[in-house]
């Protein structure tokens, strides 16, 4: 079979294999750390849930929980 355009593209990009942002071995550690931070910050927010604490604790807790959950599920073997 003659060389096809997509095959050419594949051959041409041989030097750029896909690189994950976080390697497989680090996913569980990162996921666990982020989820612990999320738990800690939501606890702090729960102690004093005022409007001022919403961006101070709530926002970083949500961020940590969002990324932490994704890395945790990957680290546990469910690759989403």
């Amino acid at each position: 079979m003659s060389a096809t355009p997509l095959l050419d593209i594949w051959e041409a990009s041989a030097s750029q294999p896909f690189q994950p942002s976080i390697g497989k071995s680090a996913q569980l550690t990162i996921g666990f750390t982020l989820l612990s931070i999320a738990l800690l910050l939501s606890g702090l927010f729960g102690l004093n849930n005022t409007l001022k604490n919403l961006p101070l604790y709530g926002l970083p807790a949500s961020l940590a929980f969002g990324f932490g959950a994704v890395y945790m599920i990957c680290g546990c073997g469910v690759y989403v």
Binding site: F45, L51, G66
Partner: peptide, 21 residues
Amino acid sequence: RKPISIILGTMSVFVVAWSLS
């Protein structure tokens, strides 16, 4: 999309917790 949807979900829980207070 995945982390953002989780972040928005968690954030809304915090907002609801604050407004209920």
